[in-house]
Amino acid sequence: MELTTLLFYFFSLLTIGSAIFMVFSKNIVHAAFALMFTLLGVAALYVLLFADFIAATQILVYVGGILILILFGVMLTTKGFTDNLKTLTTNLRPVSVVMTLVAAGMIYVLLTTTWPVAEIAEPEGTITGLGTLLLKEYILPFQVTGVLLLVAIIGALLMATKVKHQQ
């Protein structure tokens, strides 16, 4: 077996395993750290798919940004330590049974479908192509995302400061 294959299985296991841990974890902070492992595993899978830039973005944005935001959210909305961080789980059994069935169905579909796979040579790096695409064909979505981000930041700031005024 090749090293990449081993790595693939390792990171798949890491991804799925910590995701399942999230479902059964009672502690929200533990769940958040499990999410970190999931995100890292996904980033590793991106690397295995030759998407290095996306992988780095995944780590930078998800792990370095969103996850920290989530952790801050947890810390700000609960009062401190372990005991207060328990979360309720409802309908866990029926939902997990149903979702297992759904997953089985999806996997069945995936396995029985013949995908039009084109085996391309390993790219040398995606960053040049991405840059060109972004500034040519995708210039409009790029700009729109920029505006969206700006709006989101302003909106979030506004909401956060509003909270202060109410207090």
């Binding site: 391309i120 790219p123 192509g129 695409l133 989101a152 979030a156 909401m159 956060a160």
Partner: peptide
Amino acid sequence: TLDGHLTALFLIILAAAEAAVALAIVL
């Protein structure tokens, strides 16, 4: 080839924006 990457990139950016706004709402 790279269009999927770009879509993923936009999705990540969207997720970031979504998380920021959602957490502000949660607060």
